[in-house]
Design a protein around this nucleic acid. Structure first.
Lengths: 353, 353
DNA sequence: AGCTGCCCTGAGAGCGCTCTCCCCCTGTTG
DNA sequence: CAACAGGGGGAGAGCGCTCTCAGGGCAGCT
């Protein structure tokens, strides 16, 4: 039946059509369709019936035109990549190759969906792409942006802030930007790793830190060291890595050379932990018997690793959902001050520690 | 200066503003901004100057309202999942955990970007979500859909076709649907694997097939068998797997039990190949010396595997770009008949064969 | 010179929706 | 009973854009 009505009007039904069917004015239908405000229940009922009878769907463009809201938000994967097409492909592949983004997307959609919104996916890996993101938002095609940066020195957030656009970041930017963000309590993650190792009775720990110019890298290390110090281990050898398996392996080799008697390693991410495990195994150390290893992220690398890694997990979906919530809030009430939401990590115990 | 103009008009500049600055009518500015048609070069110049001076950006909603084009397309990750929130999360994580989707996204964006379009990301894993995708499109919020199904029996494509909506699929659906699609020549992929193994002098091949109710599963097998037959190996033992590492391992164990002297295995995807390698190694077979293994997909599992897998790669980015191109074409000219674009796979030689 | 026809430009009518008036009707109060 | 308040509903003005239509100017033709 709804199809008949649909077809008869030769095109998608409009408010006008619904009004005619319900025997009321356009304004009343609009009132019912949107936040119902002061409408006689009987009429509401009639309108609702007319809506289903006609198969009416509000035209988003028409609505946006007058409300000046796109009812759309941009999900921007941002980073400082190169400008060649190959690098762009590589950027995208790298970004999405990491299941981390899948979890972000999942969390964002999980929040947005009940609100009838859908994210527009954008990459901002080049200067041109960043300009386009800003233009897209200024143009009103999206009401705000959710930004996930792959690099700490991402130039996009400052651009967004300067243009006065609504945006929320995943992870605290390296230098302060007047934008809300969600982040993990990396310090606490480091603490969790330390306490696990301490609880296992390990007394000669070492750590493979992430890049120390990235907040996450610094804080995971700081948290680990603090907790170790509190646990009676004031001195912890550190080797810096670059969040890759190879860098983890190299760092592990250095640590082993300098401290052959170590019995525990905390790597600031799973990839480095995996590299570390490989080196450990190659050098004849058993994991976890001889050396316990704790990673960070709970990425697939954690389960793929032999042995499966004990690791620190971030509630990425929850964080992403909160990011979306903060953005919506900012869009609704542009005046609200910027805030941040910091989430607690969780220790996932597997076999490596 | 563009900022001054921007600010002075207190809000985003409109066509009217540009027209005033350029000293022409709205219509003329519109003509210049869009496909320039019969406009005096001098006036074009003046308009363009006014556009940059004012920092004008067409309002997408207003334009969409009259053109009845959203200039947006939906990128739908579709599948038949469960309806619980956990399953939805799992769905998303699974979908994006697979770098395959990253490559699809990358290819789609690569094509769309130069056309000033951006994809809206949607999941269609439940009946409600599917209904919403259809509603979203009927509502005109997007001009068409790019559908990537995780299951062969995805109900979304038929729904889209029936609603008369523009859509293009990734991979041929299990049962015919009047929709265009892009796909890989899976048969040829099977052939490539067979010829590699044959070229290596292997004479006792076996294969771990994918699910045989999926076109890709059937065709990879058929192509492999045909090429083997042509190469003088009419009989090839088959074990069916489910595209997971575990199923690959189990299939491998079965094959080994029945055919202990096999010297080559073609697994219909890398995950199964990885599982197969593990079993092979556990049972004391060396890869590739005793048994050569070829996978399919060239996923990260291929490089993560010990030894790294020789595998068949699909040009996913190109396929995704073509999918977007076909969709745009269909949107521009709705009358054109549905077509399909079949791409050629490529053998990537690593160490396992 | 007068006419035809073409090229270019402007005027203006909407696209479908929201939202501000404004009016009417009912219920309440002096 | 008159005056008023207030809730419920309709009329209508746009939001910014595209596109049709008509008109003005000019070249080429008879």
């Amino acid at each position: 039946m709804s199809q008949d009505a649909q077809v008869s009007s030769s095109s998608a039904p409009t408010l006008e059509d619904v009004a005619r069917v319900a025997g009321v004015s356009r304004a009343t239908v609009s009132r019912v369709v949107n936040g119902v405000r002061n409408v006689d229940p009987a009429i509401q009922e009639a309108v609702r019936a007319a809506v289903t009878a006609t198969g009416y769907r509000p035209n988003r463009a028409a609505r946006s035109l007058v409300t000046r809201r796109a009812e759309t938000i941009a999900l921007v994967v941002s980073g400082a990549g190169g400008d060649s097409p190959e690098e762009q492909d590589a950027f995208a592949a790298r970004a999405f190759g990491d299941p981390f983004f899948g979890r972000v997307v999942s969390g964002v959609i999980g929040y947005l969906r009940p609100h009838g919104m859908h994210p527009v996916l954008m990459f901002a890996e080049t200067a041109a792409a960043r300009a386009e993101v800003v233009a897209y938002l200024r143009q009103g095609s999206a009401d705000g942006a959710l930004v996930v940066s792959t690099h700490a020195e991402d130039p996009l957030p400052p651009m967004l802030a300067e243009a006065g656009l609504a945006a929320v970041l995943f992870a605290r930017p390296a230098r302060p930007v007047p934008l809300s963000y969600v982040d993990l309590d990396h310090r606490d993650g480091g603490r969790l790793a330390a306490e696990r190792l301490l609880g296992l009775g390990r007394r000669r720990p070492a750590t493979i830190a992430g890049p120390l110019d990235v907040p996450a890298g610094q804080e995971r290390l700081a948290g680990f060291r603090d907790a170790m110090a509190r646990g009676g281990q004031p001195y912890v050898p550190v080797a810096e890595g670059g969040f890759t398996a190879r860098s983890g392996a190299e760092a592990m080799a250095r640590l082993l050379a300098d401290h052959p008697d170590l019995d525990a390693v905390f790597a600031a991410n799973d990839l480095m932990a995996e590299g570390a495990c490989r080196v450990l195994l190659e050098q004849g150390r058993r994991v976890p018997e001889d050396v316990a290893v704790v990673g960070f992220d709970d990425s697939p690398a954690a389960t793929a690793c032999r042995p499966p890694l004990t690791t620190v997990r971030q509630p990425v979906e929850d964080m992403a959902a909160e990011m979306a919530r903060l953005l919506r809030q900012r869009i609704e009430a542009p005046g609200t001050p910027v805030t941040s939401a910091v989430f607690d990590p969780e220790l996932v115990v597997r076999e490596s520690a």
